Simulated scan of single mutants.
Amino acid sequence: MGRRQGIMMPVWRDLERVLQSTSAPDSDVSAELHTSTRTAASDWGIRSSNTSERWLEARPQLVENMLKATIIRAEFCQMCKTERAVIRCADCMSLSHLCCGCDQKHHHVYSLHNRSSLTNNCRIPLPPTVMVTNEGRHDTCARILPMELPQHICDCSNSVSVIVGRPVVFVNINGRYDLNLPELRCRGCCASWTPQLADLQQSGYWPATIQFCTVHDTDIFQRFREMKLVAPGSSRLSFIRMLEVQTKQHGRTGKVCSDTFYKAFMEWVISSIMQNTEVCIVFVNYVS
């Protein structure tokens, strides 16, 4: 038995040597095959390189398109189709170029749109309280804060007219606006309606003070809260400076008070928590 094992050991060593010599080329071939089949779908480095190359190729065209966008062309009003356009609205994509009359009719309602003047071969950002005349002159006007209005304010069947109310400062994610609150007046019995605190909240706004001389859009509070949750180190002053930059870029003026904003934000957070608590209590009582 021992003699037989001594004879078989050299045979097994020779067999292992032969198998190793024959399998080595196959492993090299498979490695080369794996390297040659690397594609953008499986390799992040190739995808990143291809993306950078595509952006580099498209950069001249992007710059050319930006330069073409700054050119002011003589165009007709897209609403009346007859008068020369003197206003471009960045928020009215289908009606971006308007004449003086159509601009006053259209943006009397959409007072939060960002407009710019196309007169004198230059583009000048305009606040909502400035309109352009047919002669190219800039005149001031009053604009009303968009909000939900009641359908009836009295028992009369006469039509109700919307008039300009007291001034109010409105702040949203695009910065500060100097507007006026709306007022309703009946043409028959002279009954009037002015917005109260509940009307502002129904429209999605939040007062900065109880007298609501300054009003915030609640969307700005939600974005500020999300920013603090995602990036706790972000400062409140940086957020306020961003709003002021937006105000200046769109031709408006004025500052956003940081302390007033933060106080109103905290009151909105507390009220939201209390609202959710009340909803949970009502739901539990209903289920039980």
Score class of each variant (00 low, 15 high):
His152Ser: 10
Asp139Thr: 00
Asn134Ile: 03
Arg137Ser: 07
Gly175Glu: 11
Ser161Asn: 02
Val171Met: 05
Gly188Tyr: 05
Asn180Thr: 14
His138Gly: 00
Thr140Gln: 09
Cys186Gly: 04
Cys189Thr: 03
Gly204Phe: 03
Glu148Cys: 08
Val171Trp: 07
Gln151Leu: 15
Gln151Ala: 11
Asp139Ala: 07
Leu200Ile: 13
Asp199Ile: 08
Ser157Gly: 10
Ile144Ser: 04
Ile173Val: 12
Pro150Cys: 01
Asn172Thr: 06
Ala142Thr: 11
Ile173Trp: 12
Gly165Val: 01
Leu145Met: 14
Thr194Trp: 02
Val171Asn: 03
Thr133Lys: 04
Tyr205Leu: 11
Gly136Val: 08
Gln202Leu: 15
Ile144Gln: 03
Ala191Ser: 13
Met147Gln: 00
Arg137Thr: 09
Leu149Met: 03
Ala142Cys: 15
Glu148Lys: 00
Ser157Trp: 13
Gly175Ala: 08
Cys186Thr: 02
Pro146Cys: 07
Ser157Pro: 07
Arg185Gln: 11
Thr194Phe: 03
Ala142His: 14
Cys154Tyr: 03
Cys154Ile: 01
Leu197Asp: 14
Cys156Ala: 05
Ile153Phe: 03
Asp178Met: 11
Pro167Val: 04
Cys186Ile: 02
Thr194Val: 12
Ser192Arg: 15
Gly136Pro: 09
Cys156Glu: 01
Ser159Trp: 07
Tyr205Arg: 13
Cys190Arg: 09
Ala198Ile: 14
Cys189Lys: 04
Cys186Lys: 03
Cys190Asp: 15
Val164Gly: 08
Pro167Gln: 09
Phe170Pro: 08
Ser157Phe: 15
Ser192Gln: 15
Arg137His: 11
Met147Cys: 02
Asp155Glu: 09
Glu183Ile: 04
Tyr205Cys: 10
Leu184His: 00
His138Thr: 05
Val171Tyr: 08
His138Leu: 12
Arg143Leu: 11
Asp139Ile: 07
Glu148Gly: 06
Arg187Met: 00
Ala142Val: 15
Pro167Tyr: 11
Pro150Thr: 03
Cys154Ala: 01
Leu197Phe: 14
Gly165Ala: 04
Ser203Cys: 06
Leu200Tyr: 14
Gly175Trp: 12
Leu145Gln: 13
Asn180Ala: 13
Gln202Val: 07
Gln202Met: 12
Leu149Gln: 02
Ile144Cys: 03
Arg185His: 09
Gly188Thr: 00
Gly175Ile: 06
Leu179Asn: 14
Leu181Pro: 00
Asp155Val: 13
Cys190Val: 08
Leu145Glu: 14
Leu184Val: 01
Glu183Asp: 10
Arg185Asp: 02
